[in-house]
């Protein structure tokens, strides 16, 4: 079947098998390998991207379901050389180690803060319940998201 998606501002039209998952469409059809696969049970969130601005697990969305939608992946987050405030906060707070969960974690965090910029630590921890990280113990991720949320409230986004 034919699908047409806008990914990071660029429209792509491809012929795919109906069973093609969005994550494989991004990785294999478009070569956007920033989005990772970490599990097969919709648990880990490594594959999180934004669909029409909201976080979704791209391993549990068919490319067919994303037909006509707008997708943002980690590759589309920065404005040229200028890191998104969430990316900057992850760096400044050492919110990543091996980097594997990072793209999904950052996208989930962007969606979380966009929906509710006025959040506290508990809210951040619960809001990231669907994104697993094995390296950081989440401490610095939570600090980064709180910091980015602060900058969002101050109008920096």
């Amino acid at each position: 079947m034919r699908v047409k998606l806008e990914v990071n501002g660029v429209t792509h039209e491809r012929e795919v098998e109906p069973r093609t998952l969005l994550v494989y469409f991004l990785r294999e059809e478009l070569g956007l390998t920033g989005t990772n696969v970490g599990c097969d049970t919709t648990s880990c969130g490594a594959c999180t991207v934004l669909m029409d601005g909201e976080s979704v697990k791209s391993c549990t969305v068919l490319a067919a379901q994303a037909d006509g939608r707008s997708i943002t992946t980690i590759e589309g987050l920065a404005e040229g050389e200028e890191l998104h405030p969430m990316q900057r906060a992850f760096r400044e707070h050492h919110g990543l180690q091996c980097g594997y969960c990072t793209p999904g974690m950052v996208m989930a965090a962007v969606s979380l803060v966009t929906e509710s910029p006025d959040l506290d630590e508990t809210h951040v921890r619960e809001g990231l319940e669907g994104n697993l990280c094995r390296c950081t113990g989440y401490h610095n991720i939570v600090a980064a998201v709180l910091d980015a949320a602060r900058s969002s409230r101050e109008g920096a986004w």
Partner: peptide, 21 residues
């Protein structure tokens, strides 16, 4: 010192085995 590794992980993602063409 902030990590030199991070800009890549945060913008294009790392290059893991399954990412290699």
């Amino acid at each position: 010192v902030l990590r030199k590794e991070d800009p890549k992980f945060l913008t294009t993602g790392g290059t893991y085995v399954d990412d290699l063409p």
